[in-house]
């Protein structure tokens, strides 16, 4: 046994030469004003935004750019201001939002009806999953030609495609959410004697709210995109409508500052819905309940 013991390398003892006194460095120091300012997130992002706008303005002024193809930022901003004042922009926004809200509500109500049916019976669940598997990959906008055939040019066709874009996204996401509700929560509900619709609304909906909200968000994103696309097609098929139609019409007439003004409006609406509405719903529900950080 003693043969196998390994020799351990023993480091010889040594003594460090005398340490010099440390030169005095700042152990703690206030950040300079610029550092403190540039640490504010909003300031940095706002600067970037200003920088981008400046680049746009300078590029379109100095570069040899045809203003009909690419207007300056100032022209676009002026047009946006004027259309806001004259009420033209608000009118267009209202037309688009009206259709969107109508389609969104109808889509969500239909999805809820399908879901209640799916929760209560196995055949309903099969029906729903087959329908969503079929229609979820189908872009709602591709139904627009048929909708125009069935309902004519006008609001009903737009509402039809908007419903289509909301319904399946919401139904799919909510259904998966319901499926993942834990057995414990379900048993609590059954213990209280809940069945049918009260069971759905008092147990399944709160438990699956995170997925429902995801579904509503995806549905909104699809609906907004579909609506703008549908209005563009309508423009081509000479109907009339909201923001999408304004973009199409002004683009066709080479009124490009108007196109950019309308694009700004589309972005602003998107930001408001996503960051104000959905964000607040999220904060006051799933985040407050501790389901999502």
């Amino acid at each position: 046994m003693t043969d196998t013991t390994t020799d351990i390398y023993i480091r010889p003892e040594f003594e460090v030469s005398k340490l010099e006194t440390a030169t005095n460095v700042d152990v703690e120091r206030r950040l300079s004003l610029i550092e403190r300012i540039s640490n504010i997130n909003a300031v940095r992002k706002f600067t970037i935004l200003l920088g981008l706008v400046a680049i746009w303005e300078i590029y379109t002024r100095i570069g040899d750019v045809e203003p009909l193809l690419f207007p300056t930022f100032s022209d676009s901003a002026v047009v946006l201001w004027e259309t806001l004042l004259s009420g033209l922009m608000l009118e267009k926004v209202w037309v688009s939002l009206y259709v969107l809200v109508l389609g969104y509500i109808a889509g969500v109500v239909l999805a809820a009806a399908f879901l209640v049916f799916a929760v209560m019976s196995r055949i309903g669940s099969d029906f729903l999953s087959t329908m969503t598997a079929m229609f979820q990959p189908l872009p709602a906008i591709s139904l627009l030609p048929l909708a125009m055939l069935w309902f004519g040019l006008g609001v009903p066709s737009l509402v039809f495609v908007t419903i289509h874009s909301v319904l399946w996204a919401v139904a799919l996401s909510t259904h998966t959410g319901f499926m993942q509700v834990s057995e414990t929560l379900r048993m609590v509900g059954r213990n209280y004697g809940l069945r049918g619709i009260p069971y759905v609304f008092m147990i399944l909906v709160p438990a699956a709210f995170a997925s429902i909200l995801t579904g509503l968000k995806v549905g909104w994103a699809f609906a907004w995109r579909t609506l703008i696309g549908a209005e563009l097609v309508f423009g081509a098929a000479s109907g009339e409508g909201g923001l999408g139609w304004m973009i199409y019409e002004k683009g066709d007439n080479l009124d490009t500052p108007y196109v950019f003004a309308a694009l700004f409006a589309v972005i602003v609406i998107g930001l408001i819905v996503e960051n104000l509405i959905f964000r607040n719903v999220e904060i006051s529900t799933v985040q407050k309940w501790g389901m999502q950080r």
Partner: peptide, 11 residues
């Protein structure tokens, strides 16, 4: 991200 890509098609 909130801007539907299709809105850029006319441009």
């Amino acid at each position: 991200n909130p801007l539907p890509a299709i809105a850029l098609l006319p441009m």
